[in-house]
């Protein structure tokens, strides 16, 4: 009786494990497709990011800003006035 239970249990276990293996393999296979799609998406986004970063850096470089400022007529202010915050020697009453 015990032998029979053991044999049946073994068969059931083998079947369950077989089904599990098929399920995992199947899941992995579909995940692989999703993974591939994600990889492609990542590459596309990275490429777009690189292109946008290039445009951003080009337009915001100091060289470009200074050139644009000069075109618009901005010039450095030669005279700088420093406001001294020290306390006066005497207050008028």
């Amino acid at each position: 009786m015990k032998l029979r239970i053991l044999i049946i249990s073994s068969i059931v276990l083998a079947v369950v494990m077989g089904i599990a293996k098929i399920a995992v393999a199947s899941s992995l296979s579909t995940s692989g497709i999703s993974y591939g799609l994600l990889e492609t998406q990542i590459q596309t986004l990275q490429k777009q990011n690189m292109i946008l970063a290039e445009q951003l850096y080009t337009d915001t470089s100091l060289t470009e800003i200074a050139s644009e400022a000069a075109t618009l007529g901005f010039v450095p202010d030669g005279k700088v006035v420093a406001v001294d915050s020290s306390i006066p020697v005497a207050y008028a009453r």
Partner: peptide, 10 residues
């Protein structure tokens, strides 16, 4: 890749 040349998560 699998038999249909699809990438497998690995």
């Amino acid at each position: 890749k699998d038999a249909l040349n699809r990438p497998i998560l690995s």
